[in-house]
Design a protein around this nucleic acid. Structure first.
Length: 236
DNA sequence: CCCTGATTCGC
DNA sequence: GCGAATCAGG
């Protein structure tokens, strides 16, 4: 197999999408995991959390070979660098935790117990609670418990496409020109769309138009209906 | 052992 | 440029 533009593009998408080299190699087919990694590095899209790279300062891997015919294990990593303080600027912490009004500061006076729980919680009595916007629990009519403060807001980080759909046609990739025939089932991690070039004038490619549009046969001569999108058994 | 990515080096 | 072999951490 050779690295065609399509394959390189798919490799790049999946690699940046977070797919592992094995997944990519498996998806592309005809190449090994090592080939994918090698190609990825050659393409310059390196830098991804490597399990083996926790240790920084590789100190330049000793270029084994050539002059030293040491059979194996040329690992003279002696190089004791005693002093390397490395101030480590540390990423600027984003703190906005206190920026909103906390209705019930749990951290109370240093002396008292923080929010003593009800002495005898009525275990048998079913409590009706509901969740309001923001995640706090609404109180029932008879509730005397202090309202539970909402969980501290988490920093929202843009979701990365899951490795399973990396390189595949997602909902956001749909437009008028590509086939929107669903592949797999919604909710499944690898759900995506066909993505082929559309049959002009139709929402699907030629092949899937063949599935979607079938000649109406006279009554009595009907064949069992073809599997519908989203409905029937898995169709791929 | 399995997995991962990184690197080397003969081709 | 390619990728198997190898290394090394989880």
């Amino acid at each position: 197999m050779s690295w065609t533009d399509e394959r390189i593009e798919k490799l790049t998408k999946m690699w940046e999408g977070g797919a592992t080299a094995s997944q990519i190699a498996d998806e592309l087919g005809g190449v090994s995991r090592n080939a994918v990694i090698g190609k990825a590095h050659r393409l310059g899209l390196k830098a991804r959390p490597s399990p083996v790279k926790a240790n920084e300062k590789p100190a330049v891997r000793p270029a084994a070979a050539a002059a030293a015919p040491t059979p194996k294990k040329p690992k003279p990593v002696v190089e004791a660098r005693p002093a390397a303080p490395d101030p480590e600027p540390e990423e600027p912490r984003i703190e906005e935790e206190e920026s909103f009004d906390d209705p019930t500061p749990v951290r109370a006076a240093p002396s008292a117990e923080p929010v003593p729980p009800p002495a005898a919680p009525p275990v048998d009595q079913p409590r009706i609670v509901s969740v309001g916007p923001g995640g706090f629990l609404r109180q029932g009519p008879g509730d005397q418990q202090q309202p539970i403060p909402p969980a501290p807001p988490r920093r929202l980080v843009p979701a990365k496409p899951s490795p399973e759909v990396a390189g595949k046609t997602s909902l956001l990739d749909l437009n008028d020109r590509i086939c929107r025939w669903p592949m797999g089932h919604p909710g499944e991690p690898d759900f995506h769309f066909c993505g082929e070039k559309v049959n002009p004038g139709f929402p699907y490619c030629v092949e899937h138009c063949g599935r979607a549009y079938q000649a109406q046969l006279p009554r009595g001569a009907r064949r069992p209906p073809p599997p519908l999108p989203f409905g029937g058994p898995r169709v791929r």
